[in-house]
C-alpha cells in the first residue's frame, strides 16, 4: 500500500486492566486503491460491549451486514455459562457507537465515512483542522449519544446512521477518535491549548499513554478531569505527499 500510512493507539480506563478495554478498532487494506478503518466505543453501562465494539469494526472493514453481526454477538454470549445477574444484563444487549472510513486512491481521492454516535473523524490540512465529523464542538458530546444495540434487529434502518463523502489531498492527516478523546481534542482546539499539536506529534504507544495520563490528571474544579476517564482509541492516518 503506497497512498497512506497509519498507526493505531489504544488505552483502557485508569484503574482498569487491559482486558477490560471496551473500545474496538479494525484496519483492512482491501487492495492497492482502498483502505478501510473503523473505531467503536462499547458503552460502559452494558456488558459484553467490548465484543460488540470489535464486531462492529470488523463488520465495517469486512463488509458484513449489521444484522449478521448481531447474530454473532448473540451466539457468542448465549454460549457462555452465566450467573443470574450476568444473564439478565446480557439480555439487555450491548451498545456501542462506531465510525468507519474508507479511503480510495486513484483519480477520485475520495473518502466515504459512516458514523453512528459520537466516535469522530478529523481532517487536518497544512497544520489546521479542516473538518470534524459527525460532531464539531466539544459541547456536543453528552452522556446520551446514539448507540447501536446488539439485539434489536429493527434498529438497523435507524436515522442515526450518518454518511458523508470527503475528498483528501496528498499531505492531509486524518484522526479517528473515540468520544472522550475527541471531546478533549475539540476542547483543546476551542481553548487554543497545545493538545492539537501534541496529538499530531504522537509517534508511538508510549507517547500516546503519556499524553492520556497527563490530560486525565488535569482537572477543572467544576467539570472534573479535562480528559474524561474512559477507554480511548486513536487512529492516525497520513496521506503520503
Amino acid at each position: 500500500m503506497t497512498f497512506l500510512k497509519y498507526d493505531a493507539y489504544k488505552m483502557q480506563k485508569a484503574g482498569n486492566s487491559a482486558e477490560e478495554y471496551e473500545d474496538g478498532y479494525s484496519i483492512k487494506e482491501i487492495n492497492d486503491e482502498e483502505v478501510r478503518f473503523a473505531i467503536a466505543d462499547g458503552a460502559t453501562e452494558s456488558s459484553f460491549s467490548g465484543i460488540w465494539a470489535s464486531l462492529l469494526c470488523e463488520g465495517y472493514t469486512e463488509s458484513i451486514p449489521i444484522s449478521q453481526l448481531k447474530e454473532s454477538w448473540l451466539a457468542k454470549v448465549d454460549a457462555l455459562e452465566l450467573p443470574w445477574y450476568a444473564r439478565e444484563k446480557a439480555e439487555q444487549g450491548a451498545w456501542a457507537a462506531y465510525l468507519g472510513a474508507s479511503f480510495f486512491s486513484g483519480k477520485s481521492n475520495r473518502l466515504e465515512i459512516q458514523a453512528y454516535g459520537d466516535c469522530n473523524i478529523f481532517q487536518i490540512r497544512e497544520g489546521n483542522l479542516l473538518k470534524a465529523f459527525p460532531l464539531t464542538r466539544s459541547s456536543e458530546f453528552g452522556s446520551t449519544p446514539a448507540l447501536l444495540s446488539s439485539l434489536d434487529q429493527k434498529q438497523e434502518c435507524d436515522d442515526d446512521f450518518q454518511n458523508i463523502d470527503y475528498h483528501w489531498l496528498q499531505g492531509d492527516n486524518f484522526l479517528l477518535m473515540t468520544d472522550a478523546l475527541a471531546a478533549w481534542f475539540l476542547n483543546e482546539i476551542e481553548s487554543k491549548g497545545d493538545g492539537f499539536n501534541r496529538v499530531l506529534a504522537i509517534g508511538n504507544q508510549e507517547e500516546f499513554e503519556k499524553l492520556v495520563n497527563e490530560e486525565r490528571e488535569k482537572r477543572d474544579p467544576e467539570k472534573g478531569p479535562r480528559l474524561k476517564n474512559d477507554d480511548v482509541t486513536l487512529i492516525k492516518i497520513e496521506l503520503e505527499s
Binding site: E19, E20, E45, F48, I51, P83, Y85, A86, E88
Partner: peptide, 14 residues
C-alpha cells in the same frame, strides 16, 4: 437491588 446489581455487572462479573 436487582437493578443495581445488574447495572454494576460487566462481562467478568459484578
Amino acid at each position: 437491588l436487582q437493578n443495581l446489581v445488574i447495572k454494576c455487572t460487566k462481562s467478568e462479573g459484578i
